[in-house]
């Protein structure tokens, strides 16, 4: 039988299928993420040359930029899940919305803390209320707000609908964060890695950075799938197939 994509996606929408397929992918994704992150980190921290002005402190970029990328991209993942949940009332989209929030929040915290750590030796201050830093802090509050709001409701369906609306309203912040350094005077510098223009970083430095960015994307996918699988088990705990899994594992 030929592999059919529409059918594949249709099945992926079912929690039971997602649990199974996700379980098959997880070890591979985790392995790929570990490879990229380990090689990227060793290359970036030990072998990449130091910067002509910042010295070694620039190496924080190898954590800061990937985590900030994921913080922004993860919000779109969450908002897209919210839109699907609103329009098609898919159970799996509700779950994805709920699970994407804490991971996104963690990445935002990582970006903020690594940024502050870099800011102290470079700018001379941990924090400044410029447009980039402030909009990034708003992003953290959006993530935390959605997480808290979701858990404030008894009924999962109601929680998903309200959080989806909040997630969609919050999408407006993402282009603001991204463009804040170009639209206004900020202390934060403009982007080094751009889609449309050549990067203003030497090749010996952006190559390990690229590995870290890919590694963080795969890590995010791994974490999201694992979290979704756990949430599926919790929600479907009364179904036969989950009880079979529990019995088979000997618990």
């Amino acid at each position: 039988m030929a592999f059919r994509w529409p059918q594949f996606f249709h099945k992926l929408g079912s929690p039971r299928w997602f649990y199974r397929i996700g379980g098959l992918w997880l070890p591979w994704l985790a392995g790929i993420a570990a490879c990229f992150l380990v090689i990227g980190a060793i290359w970036g921290l030990a072998f990449a040359p130091e910067d002509f002005k910042q010295g070694n402190s620039y190496r924080i970029i190898f954590v800061h930029v990937p985590s900030a990328f994921i913080a922004l991209a993860g919000y779109y993942v969450m908002a897209t899940a919210g839109a699907i949940s609103l329009i098609w009332k898919m159970k799996l989209a509700d779950i994805a919305l709920k699970c994407a929030a804490p991971i996104g929040a963690a990445m935002t915290v990582l970006a903020l803390i690594s940024g502050a750590t870099w800011g102290k030796p470079t700018w001379g201050t941990w924090w400044v209320w410029d447009a980039r830093n402030t909009s990034m802090l708003v992003l953290l509050f959006l993530y935390l707000g959605i997480y808290a709001l979701y858990n404030a409701f008894e009924r999962e369906e109601q929680a998903a609908r309200i959080c989806a609306v909040l997630a969609l309203v919050g999408t407006v912040n993402i282009p603001i964060i991204y463009k804040s350094v170009d639209w206004w005077f900020t202390l934060h510098q403009p982007a080094t890695i751009k889609l449309t223009e050549p990067t203003t970083m030497h090749a010996s430095m952006w190559q390990p950075l690229l590995l870290m960015i890919v590694g963080f994307y795969v890590l995010y996918t791994t974490l999201l799938i694992e979290r979704i699988r756990v949430e599926i088990l919790v929600r479907e705990r009364r179904t036969r197939w989950v009880q079979d899994i529990v019995l088979a594992s000997g618990a």
Partner: peptide
């Protein structure tokens, strides 16, 4: 006085 860094990175 805060230093503003630019977006350029290169080895010395």
């Amino acid at each position: 006085v805060l230093a503003k860094h630019d977006e350029e990175y290169m080895p010395p």
